[in-house]
């Protein structure tokens, strides 16, 4: 019985990964698009079975925006450590992927993949909501192989 519960849980959770959002110094453009995917009925990311949660402890798929500024770097890494494994990491926007327009700035510690293993990239500045949904769909496919 005790052995069955974790396997049942993992079977169920493949269908409903929870999303968590980290702002690593973003201009807020990408964050607005992330909010758009969740709140506006036109896009409605919850059709994919996922929903945003407020605590890193509940997260399965973590969406990171922003170029990882020197100021937030330690806080972001600490927050990332709090997310239980297995997890899937999505870099949203060109900022976390390459630095975008902030590349080579003295205030930027990124690109993010030097510190955190990234699984899916969604380029764009900001990416349109449909592109984010496409990225989340790819992340869910990765998530199903991990659990």
């Amino acid at each position: 019985m005790n052995a069955q519960i974790p396997s049942l849980l993992s079977r169920l959770s493949t269908k409903s990964p929870w999303l968590y959002r980290i702002n690593a110094g973003s201009c807020n453009g990408c964050d607005v698009e992330l909010a758009t995917t969740a709140i506006i009925p036109r896009y409605d990311v919850e059709r994919l079975g996922c929903q945003y949660c407020g605590s890193p402890k509940h997260a399965d798929i973590v969406l990171i925006t922003g170029p990882l500024t020197v100021r937030v770097k330690d806080k972001v890494l600490r927050l990332y450590q709090e997310i239980p494994d297995p997890k899937v990491t999505v870099a949203v926007g060109v900022c976390p992927i390459s630095g975008g327009v902030f590349r080579d700035s003295y205030a930027i510690a990124g690109p993010l993949d030097q510190y955190i293993p990234i699984d899916v990239n969604v380029p764009g500045c900001p990416p349109r909501p449909q592109a984010i949904i496409e990225g989340i769909a790819k992340a869910i496919a990765v998530w199903q192989t991990r659990i």
Partner: peptide, 14 residues
């Protein structure tokens, strides 16, 4: 064409 999302392994192929 906005279909640019990709896996990390393809990052430098784009």
């Amino acid at each position: 064409d906005w279909h640019l999302s990709h896996l990390q392994s393809e990052k430098y192929d784009l």
